[in-house]
């Protein structure tokens, strides 16, 4: 059945709506959103600020609950999960990469990457090896014992990617991962993300407002005012490794 895995949808959302009651007025962040994401797909979600893309990422990443509509993650409706079950899913199946890295200060690269393992059921004897492997895969083996404030922005984001990878998740959510980086570091980070998708077959959901970043993906969903404006394949896909070498 393994050859059919790529045909399965890891994410299915139907008529998803998210609104916030802000005092008297109701703010609608997502009006009516429906789409699916295949396992192993690299999807970019684009939109100007206030378009609802961050809200969508939070709902997809199981950090927030939709107001209405259904969300099937890995074939199961997320509506029925308890808080603890959601925490376990975030831990085992999902990796997050944030715009502002969110590394623990005064904590070594190795310890930062091991952080998700502490909340997992993975035996402690495997932690160091897993963390070291994840750090190696982002090319920071020589920085293992450094602290975040001794690293450049690009290196910090690579540590965050290693942390997202360490529990071997199915999906990686990257929220403006290059937003705080210069273009060279940004391309380096994008090349790693692209590699995770192509070589390791991980599903990537990338949030960005830059077309140049989004064009590294296979497919772009554009959101405006909480509604999907377009959902199309990327014709001329950018290859981050090529740009990086230049």
């Amino acid at each position: 059945m393994a050859h059919l895995a790529f045909l399965m949808n890891i994410i299915e959302v139907q008529n998803l709506k998210k609104s916030y009651a802000d005092g008297e007025t109701e703010t609608i962040a997502l009006a009516d959103v429906s789409f699916t994401v295949r396992k192993g797909e690299f999807l970019a979600i684009m939109g100007p600020s206030g378009s609802g893309k961050s809200t969508l990422l939070h709902v997809l990443g199981l950090l927030d609950e939709p107001s209405s509509g259904s969300y099937l993650f890995d074939g199961k409706n997320t509506y029925s999960y308890t808080g603890d079950e959601l925490a376990r899913l975030r831990n085992e199946k999902i990796g997050f990469v944030f715009q502002s890295f969110n590394l623990l200060a005064r904590t070594s690269v190795l310890e930062n990457v091991k952080l998700p393992l502490a909340y997992s059921s993975i035996p402690e004897s495997e932690w160091d090896e897993r963390a070291a492997k994840a750090i190696e895969s982002v090319g920071l083996a020589h920085r293992m014992d450094h602290q975040p404030d001794e690293l450049s922005g690009g290196e910090r984001q690579r540590v965050a990617i290693a942390r997202a990878l360490v529990t071997n998740p199915d999906v990686i959510f990257a929220d403006e991962p290059t937003g705080n980086l210069d273009s060279k570091s940004g391309k380096n980070v994008m090349s790693i993300i692209q590699e995770l998708n192509e070589k390791q077959g991980r599903t990537i959901i990338l949030i960005t407002h830059e077309t140049s970043t989004a064009e590294h993906s296979e497919r772009i969903i554009r959101l405006i005012d909480g509604v999907i404006e377009s959902d199309e394949k990327v014709v001329n896909r950018l290859k981050a490794t090529d740009e990086y070498i230049k």
Binding site: L63, G83, A87, F96, L115, S120, T167
Partner: peptide, 16 residues
């Protein structure tokens, strides 16, 4: 607050 959010995103339960 940010640290708490991060830990929760990485899989920490309320009880943790």
């Amino acid at each position: 607050t940010r640290e708490i959010g991060l830990r929760k995103a990485l899989g920490a339960t309320d009880r943790d």
